[in-house]
Computed example of a mutant assay.
Amino acid sequence: MKRLEGKVAVVTGGAQGIGQCISETFAREGAKVIAVDMSDLSYTCENVEGYKLNVTKRSDIEQFIAETVKKYGHIDILVNNAGITRDALVNKMTEEMWDLVIDVNLKGVFNLTQAVAPVMLEQKTGSIINIASVVGEYGNVGQSNYAATKAGVIALAKTWAKEFSRKGEAIRVNSVAPGYVNTEMMKTVPDKVLDPIRAKTMLGRLGEPQEIANAVLFLASDEASFITGHNLSVNGGLRL
């Protein structure tokens, strides 16, 4: 039997990279996946449905959740993956750069979870996974805004794990903190920048999107039924 057979999953930031890989992995494991992103999505993978959505627009999110529940009857998994970067040293970071990253990466996670939580609480079951980052664990030069959001989503997962199980509900909330991963965006980074990162990684290489998706799949599945409030670092042993 497939690991997510009969499950309905929502994956934000599903247009490319890690989000796309998570969506397709879930679908192969039997889930009906609604992959949301601000851009139009096109999937050849069966069981993945694209939905254009801005995670900062609360009214649009409420409509999306209502439509999803009406269509499928339940939502079993939420992966909060949508995120952006606007990097600069703190003395050069504009208020606009700060606000935009906070709005998408942190408030967007809050928005989706707040909308999905009542559905899962009524079901008394569900799995929520926030996609964090090694930068949220250790910080990084020029990424004050990004680091703050990724540390924040780890803390949110720990908090929600407590909140959503207070009355005996089997709603698990965890986070996954990837290291540097071979996405399309990373392929534009020169080796002179990536080589020091590889050198600081115990396994001596960057990760692959599938390796992150495998970790998220595990936490979403019943195999992780006794894991909640946990942050899983998937970084090859990287220490920034």
Rank of each mutant, 00 (worst) to 15 (best):
K2Q: 14
L4P: 09
E5I: 08
G6E: 12
G6V: 12
A9P: 11
V10A: 05
T12I: 02
Q16V: 11
I18S: 02
E24W: 09
E24N: 09
F26S: 06
R28A: 15
R28S: 14
K32L: 15
K32I: 15
K32E: 14
I34K: 08
I34C: 12
A35Q: 11
D37I: 08
S39K: 15
L41W: 07
S42F: 12
Y43P: 08
T44N: 14
E46K: 15
N47M: 12
E49V: 15
E49Q: 15
G50D: 07
Y51D: 01
Y51M: 13
Y51A: 13
K52R: 15
L53V: 02
L53I: 03
N54A: 10
V55G: 01
K57Y: 07
K57S: 11
I61W: 05
I61N: 03
Q63Y: 01
I65Y: 04
A66W: 00
K71R: 15
K71D: 13
H74Q: 15
I75R: 04
I75W: 06
I77K: 03
I77C: 02
L78A: 01
V79N: 01
N80K: 01
N81S: 06
A82M: 02
G83I: 06
I84W: 03
I84N: 02
T85A: 11
R86C: 10
D87P: 03
D87T: 07
A88D: 12
N91R: 13
K92R: 15
M97W: 10
W98E: 10
D99Q: 14
L100Y: 11
V101A: 12
I102N: 03
D103P: 01
N105L: 05
N105F: 04
L106I: 07
L106D: 05
L106Q: 01
K107T: 13
N111S: 08
V116D: 00
A117Q: 07
A117D: 00
P118T: 02
V119L: 02
L121P: 00
L121H: 05
Q123K: 13
K124D: 01
T125Q: 14
T125C: 10
I128K: 02
I128G: 00
I129G: 02
N130E: 00
A132I: 03
A132M: 06
V134H: 11
G136S: 09
E137V: 13
Y138E: 13
G139N: 08
G139D: 05
G139I: 10
Q143E: 13
N145S: 14
A148R: 05
A148N: 02
T149V: 06
K150C: 04
K150Q: 06
A151N: 10
I154S: 00
I154T: 08
A155S: 15
L156N: 00
A157F: 05
K158G: 07
A161R: 04
K162S: 07
F164G: 00
F164M: 14
F164N: 00
G168S: 04
I171H: 05
N174R: 07
N174D: 04
V176W: 11
N182W: 13
T183W: 08
M185W: 09
T188S: 14
D191L: 04
D191N: 13
D191G: 00
K192R: 11
T201M: 10
T201P: 04
M202V: 13
G204R: 12
E211F: 08
A215R: 04
A215H: 08
F218S: 02
F218A: 06
A224V: 08
G229I: 00
H230Y: 12
L232N: 04
S233N: 12
N235M: 10
G236K: 10
G237K: 09
L240R: 07
L240K: 03
